[in-house]
């Protein structure tokens, strides 16, 4: 038995296809991103080693920091929206008929491609024929907002479809976690006279703290690297008002052929995501001790 199941050739045959793909297409590229970040390079010609110049430039690049600020703002919004998702999930996980159907309906936008969602919301926000401005006009509001062309509101306008897209995903996660809370605990608390509010806040919430922590990491990291809807709807515009780290990196590399500088931004993004993941996990570690 042991001999058969520790046959080196078989193990290599089973593990290597996946392992090589992971190395060649995921790990080697992230190391190369760091390496290219030390170069001046237009993507076609020869690379020129310039040390940490790209990273120095990054520190002084106000456009980059403005984009990073937008990414940070998205992260804050996303974490705040988790509260709303959590409330919906707590309602759903109570004694609600059709909870299963509700959470499936909520999930539908999450299954659509970002391009389809972006194109759809570009029509919804359309200045004259979009459903929102048509409604605002019908109730007598003149000078309806230019949702995607106004530098003051464009970032918020893009955030709404992001909420719309991800709501079902987070509700699904919270719902599953809440349903896993042992019923005996809830019943015991009810018999002791706890109100539904107390049961939710003092019993269920601490018990799903681990899951909440995971969703905070997902929301923050997902926001910091966010790209898709922004790229299709505004390409970071107008005037950089919706530029984020990933869209700025993409433009530097594939629009202006600053592959070296683009790589430095990409490497910064990677490090940022890893550090943020580490710190959120560390900061919230104590809550994990709660046992069922």
């Amino acid at each position: 038995m042991n001999k058969v199941m520790s046959d080196k050739k078989v193990i290599a045959l089973y593990v290597l296809p996946a392992f090589l793909l992971l190395m060649v297409l995921v790990y080697i590229p992230i190391i190369l991103t760091g390496y290219y970040g030390l170069m001046r390079w237009d993507g076609i010609g020869a690379m020129e080693f310039i040390g940490l110049d790209n990273y120095q430039r990054l520190l002084q690049d106000s456009t980059f920091w403005r984009s990073a600020g937008h990414s940070g703002l998205l992260a804050i919004f996303s974490v705040l929206s988790l509260v709303g998702y959590l409330i919906i999930s707590m309602v759903l996980a109570g004694k609600i008929k059709g909870a299963d159907l509700f959470r499936k309906i909520y999930l539908i936008p999450m299954l659509l491609s970002s391009v389809a969602i972006a194109q759809l919301w570009m029509r919804i926000y359309h200045p004259t024929n979009g459903v929102i401005n048509r409604f605002l006009e019908s109730i007598g509001i003149e000078n309806t907002p230019l949702w995607l062309a106004d530098t003051n509101i464009v970032l918020y306008s893009i955030f709404i479809p992001i909420i719309w897209q991800y709501a079902g995903f987070y509700i699904l996660i919270y719902y599953a976690a809440l349903k896993n809370v042992p019923n005996e605990l809830v019943e015991a608390a009810r018999i002791d006279g706890a109100t539904p509010w107390q049961i939710g806040y003092k019993i269920k919430l601490p018990l799903i703290a681990g899951v909440i922590k995971v969703t905070i990491v997902l929301a923050v990291v997902g926001s910091l690297k966010y790209f898709d809807l922004i790229w299709v709807m505004t390409q970071g515009g107008p005037n950089g008002a919706s530029e984020v780290i990933a869209s700025y990196m993409y433009k530097q590399a594939f629009n202006t052929y600053n592959f070296g500088y683009g790589s430095a931004i990409g490497f910064f993004l990677l490090i940022l995501c890893l550090i943020v993941t580490y710190f959120i996990r560390k900061l919230t570690a104590s809550k994990e001790d709660v046992q069922y």
């Binding site: 995921v26 992230i30 190369l32 991103t33 592959f259 990409g266 993004l269 990677l270 993941t277």
Partner: peptide, 17 residues
């Protein structure tokens, strides 16, 4: 660990590769 890697950080090297 591969779960945590943002795809955008790999785009330029993959493009070149």
């Amino acid at each position: 660990v591969g779960l945590m890697i943002p795809v955008h950080s790999t785009l330029i090297p993959l493009f070149n590769f």
